[in-house]
Design a protein around this nucleic acid. Structure first.
Length: 337
DNA sequence: TTAGGGTTAG
């Protein structure tokens, strides 16, 4: 921890502890805790608060609690980061807080949303003295995940300063609740307001396109992404691109993107195999399935369902029987589980 | 210096 020209102080620790917290690097974080003790800064308000957040995020609730209880001097952040493990205890803590700010309220609303207590969350949302865009996003995401897009949209209309997060919550909500056309409309509206989409938004948009199955739209989205500075090699982006192109019958592009993927997983293979099968390339579907197995990936029930359906679709009776037998004897799947 | 919101798929 020592650097040339000085010893670490209370300013050194919080950002490194935060990195451990984000990555859930438990042993590294604990080592930093030890180091902070040796340097005599473990009692510092900021160092302590960072440690409490770290232990809480890594689910070491007991350690977090110990540090928290032992603090003589806490501020609103120390209170807010204190993860007590369950909602009832969190509510109790929230009621005990000497001061609260908008982040404290947001944290408790988030807890309620996670437990799908939307009524409770809404009550807090209505009660809070001031709301920011995070408060709105939390509620909108809650409604969206519960499939109540009408309430999500109603609240969205009231957001004073819309940022990429709140647009993303709305768009993914539509895509996930079977309203892909609304997702596309919302995306276009966002685009027209010069809010720059990021990977999260594009993945949701691609999911919507897959559901709509419109080739022109898919081509448009595809070129939109390639014109942007977005990293299409990010696993979730690449997977969504392959799946969207395969579903919409743009097999040439799907193949190209698939080939470029640094790490092909079972699901992306399946997207391709299914796309090939649906669009009349039964032979290629079978070849790809074989290639996948030879590459060492282990097919699961869904993968077998896809290849068996591909064989049936293409009239490959013998191949179908072959995979069915392999499924039962080599991979020990039964057809009744 | 420390805290809070959004991704996807066979």
């Amino acid at each position: 921890m020592k650097r040339e020209g000085g010893v670490p102080d209370s300013y050194t620790y919080p950002p490194i502890i935060k990195a451990c917290s984000t990555q859930c690097e438990v042993s590294l974080g604990s080592a930093l805790h030890g180091s902070a003790l040796r340097c005599g800064v473990e009692g510092d308000l900021f160092v302590r608060t960072s440690l409490i957040d770290f232990y809480g995020n890594c689910k070491h609730i007991f350690s977090a609690r110990e540090l928290f209880d032992d603090m003589s001097d806490r501020n609103v952040v120390s209170w807010t980061v204190m993860d007590v493990g369950d909602l009832e205890e969190a509510k109790r803590l929230f009621n005990e807080m000497p001061q609260r700010n908008v982040a404290s309220w947001n944290a408790i609303i988030r807890g309620l949303v996670k437990m799908v207590d939307l009524k409770g969350a809404r009550r807090m949302f209505d009660e809070m003295p001031e709301r920011n865009v995070v408060s709105y996003t939390t509620m909108i995401d809650g409604y969206a995940k519960a499939g109540d897009m009408a309430s999500a949209r109603f609240l969205f209309e009231q957001v004073p300063q819309r940022d990429i997060f709140v647009w993303s919550a709305l768009i993914s909500g539509y895509a996930q609740s079977g309203q892909p056309n609304e997702a596309v409309k919302a995306f276009l509206e966002m685009d027209s307001r010069d809010v720059k989409p990021d990977e999260f938004v594009m993945v949701s948009l691609m999911s919507a396109c897959s559901q709509i199955g419109n080739l022109e739209l898919t081509k448009w989205v595809d070129s939109y992404v390639s014109r942007s500075t977005m990293d299409t090699q990010q696993p979730h982006v690449a997977a969504a691109l392959v799946d969207m192109n395969a579903k919409c019958g743009n097999m040439e592009q799907a193949t190209k993107l698939f080939e470029e993927m640094p790490k092909k997983d079972l699901i992306s293979y399946c997207s391709m195999i299914q796309g090939l099968s649906y669009h009349g390339h039964g032979n290629k579907a079978v070849d790809l399935f074989n290639k996948m197995i030879n590459g060492g990936l282990v097919p699961d029930e869904v993968a077998f369902t896809i290849i068996l359906s591909a064989c049936s679709h293409a009239g490959f009776v013998e191949e179908g029987r072959h995979y069915f037998e392999r499924m039962r004897y080599e991979y020990s799947f039964t057809s009744f589980s």
